[in-house]
Nucleic acid binder design. Structure first.
Lengths: 203, 203, 203, 203
DNA sequence: TATGAATGAGGGTTCATTCAT
DNA sequence: CATGAATGAACCCTCATTCAT
């Protein structure tokens, strides 16, 4: 979003005290946004929930969008770390396990960061940034799949990856829907579908 | 509340002029909400885009939420009509065609009613209403699948339906993502996955 | 309020149907105003409660204020009729009875027309009209008292009347205060005070 | 809610600037409400008349009602302080003086705080709160009277107090009615009535 | 004449953001 | 740096009143 290198922070904090503040503010931001959505979240409440004043909040995040950006950054780092783990085992693990791992990946992330979806799904965030995020995600899945399909043409791989990624999102969505009866069985069903697909396409 | 079908309208229009207004307002509402999301949409803009005054809008829709409700109602009617068609052919059509039909179902609906997703996905709408809608959708898919799996136990059918429904949503989401390169191929891939799954489970 | 002779009606209704309408509208107006106050009352609700359309309401009352004026007129007629009765007996009745009658006068009126006070007390109504009403009331009380104090100087009589009028209002206010414990006893106390005063001054 | 006294303020001001603002806002609120009534008073106008922006007003008063509540609180404090003075002398002062003091009490208060009556009389304010206020007032008058009627039974005392309180209100109302000719004489008449009553009942 | 629809100024309230201490 | 206060555009919604059928 910013033209600078990365972080959405206006001035990265120098002292320890500052770093703690930022962490608290981000945590509060995640909470509030998860509860009320991006539009519903107020800077005032975020600050309050972090035990800070609005002034303090604005010291570190010059904009409401900056809070969201920072959260997104943080989240994406976690997601990528998680995918690193899967990629490392992708070449050797049984396909069934790979399917499981993929299905669980976003489930875990979403459960841990309920604000994630709100930020990505809702149209409020800069579309360019979500496009970037999506592209990165696809590339990660491509990389994972390539471990099992060394010579598949790039286009085909890309299509597969897009499909698989959707499955991963589906799993997360399903897991998050508390009103769904038999949620566990349904998740397994989804996983089975993915597994069958992978077997058909990769073996 | 009323003995009639329900409708979010405060006072259903009685003159022709009124009925036209309501239609225009609803269309405008769909447009604006699709463009800017529920929170981003403004009653003032909806009215303006319908060529009506703000007072006119409120004459028929007592609340911003009422506009959303009315849209949802309208959309769900369309979706159900569409699913009726699929259900009618479910027993006889080849599985591949069924898979196709399912994948296309929400794609079509979403393309025709871009506001739908905004309303269902964003947390702003009454959760109870969404739960109801979801339940209805699941039942529809269950009904469709049952035509091909007459004796499958209910629980198993339900799990399958949930998975299939997610695929339908995935297809719609994919179709809507303009930034996805090779979107057509990816959609086919998704459809293939669903088809393979149905064959494995229903035949 | 209007420069015409009297009634606040825009066009006094000619047919019976019309007269019934006006009566219903006025009754509805009284109800709504009593419940929600003048500002809180809406023309729409008044019309609805009378089973009429706003259009219809405006046909007879060109303005919200016109409704109030008409009610006031109606009320004042009733009050004056009531005072007529008291005046007729003022010369002969025992002082205690006179005190009683005076105390009850506004109590009765207020109970029968709860909108009265709202209209007179709240500053929303044309002050000139209230002034007129108050003057008339004072003159009525003066007339009543004069029956028992034939030669009292006018100024003294006026002062007495003003005081007595306040007692009458006090009684009505007390009677209307549902939260007052021992309301009945308190009212009697008030009446006793008035009685004592009348005896001291008139005998 | 807070452990402190209560106050209708959302966030009690902490800086001097804030405290001054609140005072100015309250004063403006009193003015505007006195002039136009509670419903007629506008938050915008209150803010403007205090030389503040509308946001500033809402910083301290979360609601229009909160302004009224704060005023009421302030007024009642003043009234009670005034009654303290009367109560202190109630035991020793001549009855005529006591009557005078009582008659003047609300006259003074009302003259100093014209918004008081508007708030108490008009039905717009939370009825529970006025009930509370009324009860408190009655108890104060009871306490005053008890100084002169040590063994009067509670019920009788209560009835007397209610009557006396009405007299106090009547005096204030009379004093406020600019259209009343011979207002001074009328007030004296009222005072005389009260005095006579007290002599009859307390001596 | 009766009715439903149309209008739009105005009201209360919110909130991102900026300032002064 | 921290904090509380200030600002005002914008929002949702109401309602007296006027029109057209």
């Amino acid at each position: 979003m910013s033209s600078q290198k990365a972080s959405a922070l206006s001035k990265p904090p120098q002292r320890r005290r500052g770093r703690e503040r930022v962490a608290a503010l981000l945590a509060a931001g995640a909470q509030v946004i998860a509860e009320k959505g991006y539009d519903g979240a107020t800077m005032t409440e975020i600050a309050a929930r972090a035990g800070a004043s609005i002034g303090s909040l604005y010291q570190f995040f010059p904009t409401k969008a900056a809070v969201a950006d920072a959260l997104l950054e943080q989240y994406m780092a976690a997601v990528h770390a998680h995918l690193d783990g899967i990629e490392a085992q992708a070449a050797t693990a049984p396909l069934a396990d790979l399917a499981q791992a993929l299905c669980h990946a976003l489930v875990t992330m979403r459960a841990a960061n309920p604000a994630l979806v709100v930020l990505i799904e809702n149209g409020t965030i800069d579309p360019a940034m979500i496009a970037t995020i999506r592209r990165a995600m696809r590339q990660r899945v491509v990389a994972i799949l390539r471990r099992r399909a060394r010579r598949m043409p790039a286009a085909e791989l890309a299509a597969m990856a897009a499909a698989v990624l959707q499955m991963m999102k589906s799993a997360a969505a399903m897991h998050a829907d508390a009103t769904l009866p038999g949620r566990k069985a349904a998740l397994e069903e989804l996983c089975r579908m993915l597994c069958g697909y992978l077997q058909a396409r990769l073996d």
